[in-house]
């Protein structure tokens, strides 16, 4: 499924005195079968962008192409359910998106409405729980009584349940401890490698994001200021910090190291590889 933004703008309260432009003339493409990161300071239009992909919001100007679908202003989406069946979206605060009484019902919800057979539903629920690393006995508990990390996992499981081609995660690392982040990174990598899915991750936690993302889109004040391969984009540290975008610490470290040894160091995105690189020169 191809996702393409063509000169897209979105404004809240359009045509009123309180109009606020969230996205301004954004043109970009999301790579298939890879992990795409959308990065930017808060209020830069990241969440708006992913809601445009899912058709939850329609652009005020421009066109969003999602597979066969064309999303345009004021035109009702034909076959909206087909579009949403292919795109799974995990929202920012899992607590605020639960609306059913038990975890099981919450996970089943999507499958029921996308027409899965009942005997397959039970099977998939078990598989999902295993995938996100949750116990079976959680199934009949109230989702509101779970801990933060468990809530996030249930939210991801409820989206993975109906097996979408594209998975969107909005601020997935919010409120997770380091072990939670670790398992999340593992899960996202597995989704890409084992199940061949396109993953879009929206976050301002650049350090964690840098470890698993392939392609990066950087937003500031509703405009795209940089996009492409993560190694190339984050090399322009001064330009990014000027626009209020955080740069991963590891990038700074590598730059300082390069200056000291006055040699080019191989691009790395995690600490283990970095240590190997350092060992070469020490």
């Amino acid at each position: 499924m191809k996702i393409k933004f063509e000169d897209v703008s979105y404004s809240y309260l359009y045509g009123t005195p309180l109009q606020k432009d969230a996205l301004k003339n954004v043109s970009t493409e999301i790579l298939e079968g890879k992990i795409n990161g959308i990065i930017g300071p808060s209020g830069s239009g990241k969440s708006t962008m992913i809601e445009l992909i899912n058709g939850l919001k329609l652009p005020t100007k421009g066109i969003v192409y999602v597979g066969k679908h064309k999303l345009r202003n004021n035109i009702r989406i034909i076959g909206a359910n087909k579009l949403r069946f292919e795109i799974g979206i995990v929202f920012q605060n899992p607590e605020e998106q639960f609306f059913l009484k038990t975890v099981k019902k919450e996970i089943e919800f999507g499958m029921k409405y996308f027409g899965y057979k009942t005997d397959r539903i039970d099977e998939r629920v078990k598989k999902d729980l295993k995938m996100v690393g949750l116990n079976k006995d959680i199934l009949y508990r109230n989702p509101f009584t779970l801990s933060g990390g468990e809530k996030r996992k249930v939210a991801i499981a409820s989206v993975l349940a109906f097996n979408p081609k594209i998975i969107i995660l909005d601020e997935p690392t919010n409120g997770l401890d380091s072990t939670g982040k670790e398992s999340l990174v593992r899960l996202i990598k597995m989704l890409k490698e084992k199940y061949d899915k396109t993953v879009i991750v929206v976050s301002h936690d650049v350090d964690t994001l840098y470890r698993f993302v392939d392609n990066v889109i950087i937003l500031a004040n509703g405009k795209i200021i940089a996009q492409g391969n993560k190694y190339e984009v984050f090399k322009r540290t001064d330009y990014l910090t000027e626009n209020g975008v955080k740069v991963p610490k590891i990038v700074y470290f590598i730059q300082k190291m390069e200056k000291k040894i006055s040699k080019k160091v191989k691009d790395v995105d995690n600490v283990i590889d970095l240590i190997k690189e350092i060992n070469k020169y020490v």
């Binding site: 949403r84 409405y113 996308f114």
Partner: peptide, 11 residues
């Protein structure tokens, strides 16, 4: 919020 989660999961 609830409307969005319902819509994204098929309703």
């Amino acid at each position: 919020r609830i409307r969005k989660t319902q819509a994204s999961r098929g309703v």
